[in-house]
Amino acid sequence: MTTKLKLIIYEEQTFKGGDDLFIDSTTENSYAVVFEDNGETGYFYAVDSKNMKVLDGLHIYNVANVTDKHKPSTLKILWTEDESKAFLSINNYYHAVFDFRNKAGYCRTGFPESNNSWTKIKERILTDTLIDSFSKSK
């Protein structure tokens, strides 16, 4: 039997695409994620907070391509109850997930390809089916 894991909102903030923004979220088990908009791009990072090391990064958007950047958006960082997976939601749409237990990062475009030793997967494209599978425990 599978049951749905509860997702918990750790961070929530209103912003506009292109705003200089840095939001971090750390769990008790030293997993951490950071969302950064530097005015040109939005990226979501997995971080080892114990050693302050970036483990992986996922491209979320290019500011120039954001159609509604003049309108406020709501960004949320959510974690599963067991704090093994972090989800990035913008306007209630999941853009990225880091699965710390399986050392994997996924985003809608699958960009960039992973070229580091932390990531243990090759296919990085985030789909709704994958999101559904992440939120279930066995």
Rank of each mutant, 00 (worst) to 15 (best):
N92C: 14
F98W: 11
H59M: 12
A104W: 02
H59K: 12
S25P: 06
R101I: 14
D82R: 03
N29P: 10
V66H: 04
D82Y: 04
L21I: 06
E28G: 07
K71R: 09
F111G: 04
R108N: 07
K138F: 07
F100K: 02
L130Y: 03
T26Q: 11
K50G: 12
L130Q: 03
K138W: 08
G18L: 02
N62W: 07
Y45K: 08
I125M: 06
I125A: 03
K16A: 11
G39K: 08
N62S: 13
I121M: 04
T41E: 15
L5M: 13
L5P: 08
T14M: 12
I60C: 04
F35Y: 10
N116A: 09
Q13H: 11
S135T: 15
A104M: 06
W79Y: 06
Y93D: 14
V54G: 00
T27H: 05
S133G: 03
F134P: 00
V66R: 15
S133H: 05
I60F: 01
T127S: 14
L126H: 01
K16V: 05
D132M: 08
G17T: 00
K136L: 14
N102D: 13
D99A: 03
T27L: 04
S73C: 11
D19A: 09
F134A: 03
Y94C: 08
G17C: 09
V66Q: 13
C107A: 07
F15M: 11
N116V: 02
K16F: 10
D68K: 12
K85T: 01
I23V: 15
T109Q: 15
K122P: 06
V63A: 07
N29F: 07
V47E: 07
K103P: 00
I8W: 09
V66N: 06
M1H: 11
F100A: 01
Y93S: 14
E12P: 02
G39M: 06
V54W: 02
F98I: 13
D99P: 03
T129F: 06
A64H: 09
T119I: 10
K53G: 00
N51Y: 14
F98N: 03
L55K: 00
R124G: 02
Y94V: 12
M52G: 06
P72Y: 09
V54H: 05
T80R: 00
A46W: 02
Q13M: 14
V47C: 09
E36H: 12
E83H: 12
N92G: 07
E28A: 09
L126M: 08
K138V: 11
G110H: 05
D68C: 10
G17M: 03
S114D: 08
L130R: 06
L21Q: 08
G57R: 03
V47D: 02
D82F: 10
D68P: 01
N38A: 12
S73T: 01
Y10I: 09
F111P: 00
S25W: 00
E12C: 08
L130T: 04
H59A: 13
Y10V: 08
K71S: 13
K16R: 15
H59P: 03
A96H: 04
N91H: 07
I60S: 00
V47W: 03
K103F: 09
F44Y: 09
K122W: 07
G39T: 04
R124C: 08
M1P: 10
S114M: 02
K136R: 14
